[in-house]
Amino acid sequence: MNIFRLTGDMMHLASILILLLKIHTSHSCAGISFKTQVLYLTVFLTRYLDLFTNFTSVYLTCMKIFFIASSAYIIYLMRFPFKDTYNKHLDAFRWEFLLGGAAVLALVFPQKYTVREVFWTYSIFLEMLAILPQLFQLQRTGEAATITTHYLFALGAYRALYIANWIYRYQMGEHVDGVAVLAGIVQTALYCDFFYIYFTRVLRGQRFKLP
């Protein structure tokens, strides 16, 4: 565990708490992609298959349980109490391609052909693209509530910090997963446009609005 990894995990945790705060304070899930949230739950469920069979640390176990439970809870909130605030016409990304594409990549690139490894690889490639429906919706709407942009910033920062974590690990001679690094770099790159507007507008107190 290094400082980049720990800060990255904390940003991931923070992103989910910010999203929950947004939904609860505004009593609305407007601007949030339901598809992205379902993809994240799928990512956690397929990645943490070893949750109850392979104990490594209290930290990992607690975080895994939190990620699964919180993303399931967010989906529940979007599907039931705040269903009326969800606009499915804005959430129009064709996510079948993501689910299918990640499945193909998972069958081509696993380190070993075991159920766990194939699912783990699937989760890595699915996470790589899971933010696309959310970014697509942002693009369509052209603007976003400030708290929603803080959510996206925390999520993007988590990914960027993981890259710093891998560089650190590599230099320390620790094991680094090639597939995870490659997918992580692609995933972080997807946030570039968002980061630019976040830094040049939102952090200067302006509304998030696409040019």
Binding site: D50, N54, K64, R116
Partner: peptide, 10 residues
Amino acid sequence: DEEQTEHDEL
């Protein structure tokens, strides 16, 4: 004997 790959990241 098959050894599990260790994935220690979240």
